[in-house]
Design a binder for these strands. Sequence first.
DNA 1: GTGCTCGTTTCGCAGAGCGAAACGACTTGC
DNA 2: GCAAGTCGTTTCGCTCTGCGAAACGAGCAC
Lengths: 273, 273
Amino acid sequence: MSEDGNGIQSVKTALDILESIAFYGEGAGVTQIAERVRLTKGSVHRHLQTLVDRGYLAQDAATTRYYLGSKSRLLSQLSPELDLVRAADGPMRKLRDLLGQTVSLTEMTPRGALVLATLVGSSPIEIVVRLGSELSFHSSAQGKILLAFAPPALQERELRKPLRAFSSKTKTGRRELKAELEKIRELGYASAAEEMLLGLNAIAVGIFDEAQVCVGSIAIVGSIQYVSAVPDRRSLAALKETAREISKSLGRHNGASAPAGARGLTIRRPGKA
Amino acid sequence: MSEDGNGIQSVKTALDILESIAFYGEGAGVTQIAERVRLTKGSVHRHLQTLVDRGYLAQDAATTRYYLGSKSRLLSQLSPELDLVRAADGPMRKLRDLLGQTVSLTEMTPRGALVLATLVGSSPIEIVVRLGSELSFHSSAQGKILLAFAPPALQERELRKPLRAFSSKTKTGRRELKAELEKIRELGYASAAEEMLLGLNAIAVGIFDEAQVCVGSIAIVGSIQYVSAVPDRRSLAALKETAREISKSLGRHNGASAPAGARGLTIRRPGKA
DNA sequence: GTGCTCGTTTCGCAGAGCGAAACGACTTGC
DNA sequence: GCAAGTCGTTTCGCTCTGCGAAACGAGCAC
């Protein structure tokens, strides 16, 4: 099928449906969901049945709308605390209070930069990146910093995919992107002015585990009025210091279960083209 | 296929795999998982790929074992707090401290009594019901109390299914079970001495929401030495009082999103036999 | 070095899951 | 108060997905 056709179709669909409810806030009906995931009502309904049966979703008996079920909630309790979130909490707050800007924490995943936490800035207008969103590798500051420090094999794979344009300012040139990654490694930060959404920008720096693998990023996000394409010295210094702090506390482990830092990404065969 | 063949096969499989990792504690390898879910390594591997790609699982780069990923953890943060767990927390602690027995909170789901929380008793030997387990309707005190107060249609459906024997003392007679449900409604509690596992028993009472729907149960769990088939007056009174307390605080709502209590179970057509 | 075990990959067949469309229960508007 | 619309649910037949079996290749222990 498409670029990387790996993965099981119907499971993907089920997860799409689950997320379309989870990462949206309110519950939803079959028709709405079908529109969001671009499927027929019939298919969506069958998936919903399965997810309800398993307790990941629940259907309100009165309104017939679907909401998250308690199995979903249990998943979190059953897994050890995520080192990254814990380590980042304090330093993130400090950074937010210092700069007054919205601060966002992301983690490396095979599909992009997963938003793990956000602290909103002091501006009356809140610009929030939704928890659970996956920012693309090529059009977000968070994604680019992660890609820049990722294993070469993964970079190759991403560069081979079609680079979707999210806004009129999204850079879609492969060569251009490759050069930018080089520059990012050199400067230690990434920015992406208006590449995701016109009027917005973010400055991201990498977070590294004890093995010097880039496992996530910390970023300030905001209007281009406050977050310019080239960051001011003070903000950049504060960002870098915050990232360093977080990286350092990722080193100390509580032993036992697998070190979160070591949970890298296995790179599958990059394709044969 | 089987009794109720509804639901999508591969999604069920994916969830089985997810849960076999989530509700087990430690990470696991492909071979172990394949054994647990009774599938070939090949199939399991493809499912794991999909789940890793979506961030619900992560593979340790060094050991190649699979663990829960951060998407799983995010699911919880994105859903409103579960009223039942919040309401039960205080009263449960009080009950545990009063009786010194292990106390367990479960919720009604289409497949049985889902264990939401457990507080261990004072005995040096811990008997814990694993979080996320789904106790069957016919062989557990928690399941039976829920079934006893469930809508008749659901009772019919459950009684029509084959009643699996978990231990030599599991009651598998339909008529017998039906009579017991009647008795349970009358007395207001259920017990299930050695029906799940020899040597163990539980006493469960129902928790009701503002619409008088039985949404969950609270139970004391332990060896048959301490938890006898017919509970002593004191324990039973304490249990009932605890359940009453929890039920009452389920009444007050914070408005907005769907009332947890109203999220009932839609009963599908019970079959045509 | 050799024999195990583990994770990953390939291949062809069967049945699972998809879309289209009908159905039935509520709401809305006139 | 009837008709038109909307929503969730169900049915049906065809296609393509996802399954099992078996080969592959990488670690590890002895």
